[in-house]
Design a protein around this nucleic acid. Structure first.
Lengths: 174, 174
DNA sequence: TCCATCATGTAACCAGTTACATGATTTC
DNA sequence: GAAATCATGTAACTGGTTACATGATGGA
């Protein structure tokens, strides 16, 4: 249940409409917690019903501006220190690796290669983001931390794939 | 839609009942693609209906032994080279980091500390698994690759947390 | 005989996806 | 006047969770 908290966090930073939030999800939060438009509006409705946000303004074209309530801010802080309720870790990539024994040796090698390539592309994508922005503002500080995590993660994936490919080559028996 | 492929992969390796599979999910696959009992039985039903698996034996206590069909094997191979249909990446941890600006500086530091601690515990848990098993068999080869990914990931998280904490300390202005 | 384990399922609910639907306002 | 953008929503479906429910069998 984290889309809820992403919304609370964004609205705590600055009030806005569903449409405004959607843009933030497409930009800064896309690599961390992507959200679809329909889901976002649904969650805004639930948040409103639960009293965690409120409508502070209704503008042109039916635009509703939302802001967090005190209850919402409390819920946000509660969640901040509750990592135990996070969704369990799942990785289709690692699942494939685990099941690679069902593949031909060439297929297995090919998959590890494609993982390596993908990680490398992601890594340079993150590098571009890093180099394109000015992170000195107070706004960008924590986004920069998250980005660094992405950079290091993709770097790790490339290194790991190299290690795995090496081990596969030196594999005893077949 | 990957529980489906986890099941196909396990059954392709060796036929078995839902109960058998459940044990494998609790042991080897728990860190990669956890599954609940109810979901697993549900998926077996769907797989059967779709003709990707078949019942090869009915034993005591209503035990049904399943095996993959040719269609199932084909589907497994198709999925193996289709990473584009994987679920989108989401991380509640990184979402928290991104929203850490809503916290007090002490709260932010505390959260990064707790992340570091958690990563360290996970790392030593993986180390214990690595040291407790004999990975030389053909069976364990790919599981060992997945485990190494976990080891490197948790290592990366610890290093990243240290880097982030250092940056937080040296943060200009407040 | 009792307990652990084997063994399978259902029901209610929550989170997320894709596709569909509608209409107002601004800008060229 | 047409097109882009602003703006909000609904419906059908899939995947996942927790909790509930039931019963057989083997060994102490």
């Amino acid at each position: 249940m984290s889309l809820r908290h992403a919304v609370l966090g964004l609205l705590a930073h600055h009030p806005g409409s569903g449409y405004d939030l959607l843009k933030k999800f497409r930009l800064s939060l896309a690599n961390v917690w992507p959200a679809t438009q329909s889901r976002l509006y649904g969650e805004l409705g639930k948040l409103l019903e639960a009293g965690l946000i409120e409508v502070t303004d209704v503008g042109a074209r039916g635009r509703k501006e939302y802001a967090v309530t005190d209850d919402g801010r409390a819920e946000l802080l509660r969640w901040m220190t509750s990592p135990q309720e996070d969704p369990p870790f799942r990785s289709a990539q690692l699942l494939r690796v685990s099941l690679l024994g069902q593949q031909s040796p060439a297929g297995a090698r090919g998959y590890l290669h494609s993982l390596r390539l993908h990680a490398e592309l992601e890594h340079s994508r993150y590098q571009q983001i890093r180099d394109a922005y000015d992170w000195s503002g107070s706004d960008g500080f924590f986004a920069r931390l998250a980005l660094e995590n992405g950079l290091r993660f993709t770097r790790m994936e490339v290194d790991w794939a190299d290690w795995a490919l090496g081990r596969l080559d030196r594999r005893p028996g077949q």
